[in-house]
Nucleic acid binder design. Structure first.
Length: 525
RNA sequence: GGCGCGUUGGUCAAGGGGUUAAGACGCCUCCCUUUCACGGAGGAAUCACGGGUUCGAAUCCCGUACGUGCUACCA
């Protein structure tokens, strides 16, 4: 009985342990800003790794030199840093499986590709891009839709399968530009298990003979991902759903290399979709729909500066919380999670298999919740920064703490602290007199003139005192306090917002309060 | 066109044969607050469609529709 129990347990655990440590990788291309989908892929990788005491590896997939963008790699790292999901290994951190940039691993891929040629699973192809294009044109003209370089027409092309061996050898000898392509089997079905989608069966016929090694000697994603995952001992490959159709190529490659026993467990993450319907969220949608798609500000060499969630006033805790909940939840009603809690509760079988439309309103709600729940210590540096960006340096920490706690529930974004609290430090530049003017009259004017006089005699500038004085004077003037509080508020903060008006006044101090009333009174004439 | 993957209110979603089908965002009403928020109470709104299987289907099966992804010497 004991024996039975333990084998069952081992079987269940085997999925994760399999004697080796869990190792996952986030493998972005340095081609631009890191958008929501990318960050979430990184986050799920991180959560899964940490949940299972594993390693989170960053690998830079820079095999396409034409798309390489200067600064993008550092940017990716900065984003991960801001989100608090630092890699355990990577180009900047190091590690024993480096180098972690595929461009720096260039020399190792050719050998593997050639091994595949030797074993008959791949072949050299000498077609020029123009020749391939012309094949497509011809086939299309014949009304064929499946215009692929595959079993149907590879023998009509120029490659080591169609050419006599001598000619192939000759072409190789003179170093004629060529690629290495996988020879996809004609009629096979590839079966594999996806941690999110369950068992999947896909026909090989639908996939073309993917290029494995490009003419410039760089591997394509298909070769590099398999070779590197093997070499880096990756145990779980979590990536976007867009990779599902080419999964058969990768699985076949693992098989052809004879590495099947080491193949990682697969998980294809759902997509994040545009809020207004069709398509996956793309970098352009932000501008079009008025919300950020990047984690942090990205200065694109071509398109200029684009703000990110960070600059907009998002807390990183809220940002990753929101992202994690877009495609995963723990099955309870809890929605607010810290990174640590997510690590503790994350599980792949609660990740959804369908895409989710991004909702900026909900994203802001997460941030609002995080601001409300954060203490002053957490908020202080961010709030100070917002003030500094507006040209106000704060020295009085105690005053700041008081104010932050007073207004934080009114702030959805960190940048809102400026609107909600700047009047405590500097007099409002503009007074919204239009909101009091319609009901303004000489009686009210008299009241405030009198108020200034009365206030100037007050010795203890406490809320109660300020309020009582105000109300007594209102009663004496036969005016309703309610009709006078709004004008006072506008005089002090510049508009119809902010915490209790007497609380504001007490923080402002007697002199400043009087000064601001006088100033507005002068505007009302 | 082909091949995948998917489909619970407008959005995020729980629920995986028997529920009045949770909850959150947003929207609306009211209370609190002589501002704006916060908070509280309520409301409108949903199982894509059609067939099966079953005493019973949001839940299982099959079709259809729709969405989405891939179909590059991009990842």
């Amino acid at each position: 009985m004991v024996y039975l129990l333990s084998t069952t347990w081992i079987k269940a655990k085997n999925y994760l342990c399999n004697m080796s440590k869990v190792r996952v990788r986030f493998a972005p291309s340095p081609t631009g800003g890191l958008h929501l989908g990318g960050v979430r892929t990184a986050l799920y990788n991180y959560l899964f790794a940490k949940k299972n005491d594993g390693d989170f590896v960053l690998r830079i997939e820079d095999t396409d030199q034409t798309r390489y963008v200067e600064g993008a790699e550092q940017y990716i790292l900065d984003c991960l840093n801001w989100c608090g999901i630092q890699p355990d290994e990577g180009p900047h951190t190091g590690g024993e499986y480096g180098p972690y940039r595929q461009s720096e691993r260039k020399s190792i891929y050719r050998e593997f590709a050639e091994k595949l040629v030797e074993s008959g699973h791949a072949y050299y192809a000498f077609d020029t891009p123009e020749e391939i294009e012309s094949l497509r044109e011809t086939l299309k003209a014949q009304g064929k839709y499946n215009v692929q370089y595959d079993f149907q027409n590879r023998l009509n092309m120029r490659n080591s399968l169609s050419l006599p061996p001598e000619e192939t050898e000759e072409l190789l000898k003179i170093n004629f530009p060529h690629v290495i392509r996988i020879k996809m089997p004609r009629n096979e079905y590839v079966h594999f298990h996806d941690m999110i989608r369950g068992d999947i069966e896909m026909p090989t016929a639908g996939v073309d003979d993917k290029v494995l090694l490009k003419a410039d000697g760089m591997p394509t994603y298909h070769l590099a991902v398999v070779v590197d995952d093997y070499l880096m001992k990756i145990t779980h490959a979590l990536r976007g759903e867009e990779w599902l159709p080419s999964a058969p190529v990768h699985i076949l490659l693992w098989k052809y290399f004879g590495w099947e026993k080491h193949m990682p467990h697969w998980a294809h993450l759902p997509l994040i979709l545009k809020p207004d319907g069709n398509g996956k969220l793309s970098k352009r949608d932000g501008e079009r729909l008025g919300f950020p798609v990047f984690a942090m500000e990205w200065n694109d060499p071509k398109n200029g500066l684009v703000k990110g969630f960070k600059e907009l006033g998002f807390m990183h805790e809220a940002f990753i919380n929101m992202l994690a909940l877009l495609g995963w939840n723990d099955g309870t009603e809890q929605e607010i999670f810290s990174l640590e809690e997510m690590v503790e509760k994350f599980s792949m079988d609660r990740v959804h298999s369908h895409g989710a439309k991004f909702d900026f309103e909900k994203a802001k709600w997460f941030n609002h919740e995080w601001i409300k729940r954060s203490d002053f210590e957490r908020l202080q540096p961010d709030v100070k920064k917002v003030f500094e960006e507006n040209g106000v340096v704060i020295n009085d920490e105690q005053k700041l703490q008081h104010i932050v706690n007073l207004v934080k529930e009114r702030c959805t974004l960190l940048t809102d602290f400026w609107q909600q609290a700047s009047f405590f430090f500097i007099a409002p530049k503009e007074i919204d007199t239009s909101s009091i003017l319609p009901k303004w009259n000489e009686n009210k004017n008299q009241f405030f003139v009198e108020l200034i006089r009365t206030y100037s005699f007050i010795n203890s500038w406490q809320i109660e005192e300020i309020e009582n004085t105000f109300k007594e004077l209102a009663a004496a003037s036969k005016l309703k306090p309610g009709e006078l509080m709004l004008p006072l508020r506008v005089m002090l903060v510049g508009g119809k917002f902010g915490p209790g008006v007497f609380e504001i006044s007490s923080i402002l101090g007697k002199e400043e309060t009087i000064k601001r009333i006088e100033h507005t009174l002068s505007l009302m004439k």
